[in-house]
Design a protein around this nucleic acid. Sequence first.
DNA 1: TTCCCGGCCGTTACCGCTAACATGCCATGG
DNA 2: CCATGGCATGTTAGCGGTAACGGCCGGGAA
Lengths: 345, 345
Amino acid sequence: MAKDPAPALQRRTLTLRDVSDASGVSEMTVSRVLRNRGDVSGPTRERVLAAARALGYVPNRIAGALASQRVNLVAVIIPSLSNMVFPEVLTGVSEVLEDTGLQPVVGVTNYSPEREEKVLYEMLSWRPSGIIIAGLERSPAARAMLENAGIPIVEIMDVDGTPVDSAVGISHRRAGRKMAEAIVQAGYRRIGFLGTMMPHDHRARKRLEGFEAALAAQGLQVEDREFYSGGSALLKGREMTEAIMTRSPDLDFLYHSNDMIGAGGLLWCLNHGIDVPGKVGLAGFNGVELVQGLPCRLATMDACRLEIGRRAAEIVAGKRPDGATSGVVIELEPKLEPGDTIRRI
Amino acid sequence: MAKDPAPALQRRTLTLRDVSDASGVSEMTVSRVLRNRGDVSGPTRERVLAAARALGYVPNRIAGALASQRVNLVAVIIPSLSNMVFPEVLTGVSEVLEDTGLQPVVGVTNYSPEREEKVLYEMLSWRPSGIIIAGLERSPAARAMLENAGIPIVEIMDVDGTPVDSAVGISHRRAGRKMAEAIVQAGYRRIGFLGTMMPHDHRARKRLEGFEAALAAQGLQVEDREFYSGGSALLKGREMTEAIMTRSPDLDFLYHSNDMIGAGGLLWCLNHGIDVPGKVGLAGFNGVELVQGLPCRLATMDACRLEIGRRAAEIVAGKRPDGATSGVVIELEPKLEPGDTIRRI
DNA sequence: TTCCCGGCCGTTACCGCTAACATGCCATGG
DNA sequence: CCATGGCATGTTAGCGGTAACGGCCGGGAA
């Protein structure tokens, strides 16, 4: 922003008044210049900008927001930052918000409904002009807060449920189903499942539900399953795969609830000389970049993370072609990427 | 928070006034109750809380912050969210801030000085009560903003330089040096380097500088090098390793600027039946969880990310034993984890 | 010339909340 | 008995901006 190093020894933080004094115009005029709003003559504008820069003035948005009843913040509430999927959603959001004057503010819930409630409350207390929040399942209190917020709400990642307002995501039930169908189609019959032990990861649960439903439709079922929580997902993937394959050596497919444990499973199989995808097939979920670097490409399903972030941001920013900022529901289509770990028929 | 779903059909957002009307006391008393400050009788407190809950009132922090001149926000400014290292720093920060009433707000710069300047300006305009910011290198304007902010500033990750105020981190030069010494000690002599092409990743640069300096002290040098930018780091690690080993087949050690490309390199070596660590040794940097899941543990150096986050937060929160909130410099000691990819002597 | 209009800038009244002070009440002690 | 003091509550005056409106001035239209 400014290019001059501001003067040393500042007693208190600067206000519009300081800039107006320094440039000989009213505070209102300074405000107009700094916001680029209303008519100000060229020379005046220059004088004001010079003064502001020289002083190192940084506007006080708190005061500005209170007076104008407008806040350029969009709350983005997500369960976690550590699993590669949400950072990509954020990238999409930032991209779209970039030139709107709006700014994303991130809150993390750690998959805890209590924390979600707290984070939401905290966010709302700053009166953001929109909310993007992961998932459709939440406590009654959280739902009430969203309903009464009076701002655009976009629930993301998932469309299997009833949104408060708008929603952008994929159907995880359908994703699970699709994967099951592809697996059965490829001739696998004795299928194992490996996943996380997170009661609040509703999307993983829905994928499994869809997966099992599709198997059932073919007269099949999940033969064995293995769960974990915490720790290095890659390592857990190895360990769980070892465990399940020892216990049920006749499994011919391992469906993992995410790519990271899937990668671990793949590494274990390759290490043990198991023929992939001949003897055992593998699949994960999310389509993270990582899988491209593995010795052979893990089958996965792209969760459309970037696109979800973009579309959600477009809604809150009023950037949709139809201008709608509420009641929009967008279901994206996850793409199956068979990679090298499902037999080609 | 509240447990009742708030009443439907809210015309405008609620204010203290609405709660005070509903509970028959003054706004000031409501304010006292909601902030748990000052004396309020038990019954009054109950009535007020009940009314607030029933209405679904959410305080307006904007007004509160303006009136009290206090903001419970701590700005955390980092280069990226997508490489596993900063989320862990954030975890440490959140942990410590948890019970202080302070709240972290994240800004991402994408390793761009211009964006850093913008993000910082934006953050400062909300008058946070502290700043935690990655790195020591920044534009004069950014430095000036920090110097004039009048709040605790903690620069994190790195201590090789002059902090504006406080700093918590490791010496990346020393980290590079230490790794070089361990490698030479183990008998490796023809050493290659693989890294990112990011002119603004000063910490990676410093590690390389330290690394080369230590080699030079032993009469050695980096024999070949390979750089990348963008894409899946794991895949790039494989590709770069293939490239460098094809070009310089006599290299006996590959030092990677981060664990992700190191993991890619390791997978490539294992895939090509190269004896690790006998014929070729490998090392990365960061100590990310991921490396534990690889077929053999990549040598790495823990960057103390969690601890850095914690210590930084303690400073801005005034939680240090000595209560200092400025001028604190903490150098943490990165630990070499030799794993299985450096010969044991 | 008069009138009107648009460019430019200032004045006033808040935005919703809290610090600081004022007030009323009751129990207590001299 | 009244002064004293602590509790519980109310009143007042901003915090630092901005919306809305008003005033002044110069120039083109009537």
